[in-house]
Every structure is written in structure tokens, then in C-alpha cells.
Simulated scan of single mutants.
Amino acid sequence: MVVPLEKAEGQGELSLLQKALALGLPVAPTWAVALEAEFFRLNNLEERIQNLFRGVFGVRIDEERLLLAAEEARRAVRESYLLPERAEAFLRTLEGRGPFLLRYAGEGASKRAANPQEALFALKRLYEARFQVEAILERYPKLIPPFVPVLVQEVDPKEALQEDPFLSLDLSRALGREVVVYAAKGQVVRIESPHGG
């Protein structure tokens, strides 16, 4: 469930990063983590969270109950655990590496981590952030977010992530459609497809 970019299954940005890698572009070391669905299932989070939000959304949104339910949902995620063997595999895969940037594939918001142990905590913080009030309202009427792989990328936090016009042009030409590449220290970190697809 924690696999190197080239072995990951996925679409969207994950697929774009794989294509960039296959074309020989310098992609930052990247792993895809697909543990969220299992994490939710094993901790019965979907049912627990649905219950927390019962009565929040009606003809009007009960704002006070929404704030309380969101806080309780974040607490439920925080206090839940990955299977020990998954956590061990995560740490083993990233051992001796870092620092890291963690984010959902296709999204820019990220968490930073200095080492594998911090990266494991950052993974849960990403899961938890899905239940900020703004995030809930953005995906309403869906309460449970879609389970998207989390990308763990070995990126120096001192390096600013910036749009790279040359890498963007190279990859756009190779793919036959426009993409925007964000890089740090000359390595591809994020790829956006401005017109979807």
C-alpha cells in the first residue's frame, strides 16, 4: 500500500507524474500511499462520522452543530490507528530518507515532515484536514471524501515550489496537451492539467 511512483495505480496527477518519469524528466523521489479507505473501514469512521453529522444539514445548515460535528470528526480521525503492519511498512519504505512533502494527488495543500516518523503523523493530519468545515462544505452533500492516494515526496522544505516554464513546455509537448509543472531544485514535484483530463 506504500509503493514507488512507477508501481502505483492511479490516474490524474499520479498518471502525469508517471509519464514524466517515463519520459526521463527529473521527478522528485515519490511514493504513493493508498491506506485511507482501509483506515476508515477498520476504524468504522464512515458510520461514526455520518452519525456525528446527523441533523446538521436540513433546510438550513445548523452552523453550531456543524462546527461541533467537524471537531468531533477530526478527533475521531486523530484517535484512530493504521494497522501496525501498515505503519511499519510505511516507516521501512522511507527509512533513511527525508525530508518529505505529503499531499493528496491532484491537490496543492501539503504537510511537511523531517523524517519517516513525522511523515506518518503528517499522513494522519492530511486525513484529519478533510474534516475542516471549509472542506466539508466544499464537497457537500458528500460527507466522506473520495479516497485519493497520498503522495509522499522527498523534497527539501527550504526549496520553494515554483512553476517551471521549461519543464512545463517539455512535458506539454511530449504529452500533446498543456500541463503546468511545479518544481523544486530542478525536480518535478507537482503537475497540474489546467484544462482537466
Rank of each mutant, 00 (worst) to 15 (best):
P26K: 15
F131D: 09
I136C: 07
Y140V: 03
I136W: 06
Q132W: 00
A183Y: 02
D62C: 04
V155W: 11
V150L: 14
R177D: 01
G108H: 10
R130Q: 15
L83C: 03
A87D: 07
G196T: 09
L137K: 00
E192T: 08
E128C: 02
F57R: 10
I136Y: 02
E163V: 12
E71V: 13
G12D: 03
E79D: 08
E38T: 12
V179S: 10
R74K: 15
L82R: 02
A183G: 02
F39Q: 12
K158D: 15
L143N: 15
N51M: 01
G196P: 05
Y140I: 01
I136G: 07
L25A: 02
E134K: 12
E38L: 07
L126T: 08
L167V: 04
R125T: 00
A105V: 02
L83N: 13
N44P: 06
R103P: 04
E138A: 13
A37M: 03
E72R: 14
Q117P: 00
H195G: 10
R177F: 14
G58R: 12
Q153M: 08
L167Q: 06
P145C: 03
F100V: 03
E36G: 10
L35W: 14
R112W: 09
L151F: 13
V188S: 03
E128Y: 06
F121Q: 09
E88K: 00
S15E: 13
A113W: 01
R48P: 04
V133W: 01
P99E: 11
A73C: 08
P4L: 00
V189H: 04
A28D: 06
S172W: 08
V150Y: 03
E192W: 12
P29C: 03
R54N: 09
A69S: 09
A37D: 14
R41C: 03
Q11Y: 05
F166E: 15
Q132R: 10
K185P: 06
L67S: 11
F39L: 10
E118K: 00
A69R: 13
P165H: 04
A109G: 00
I49W: 02
A70V: 13
T93I: 01
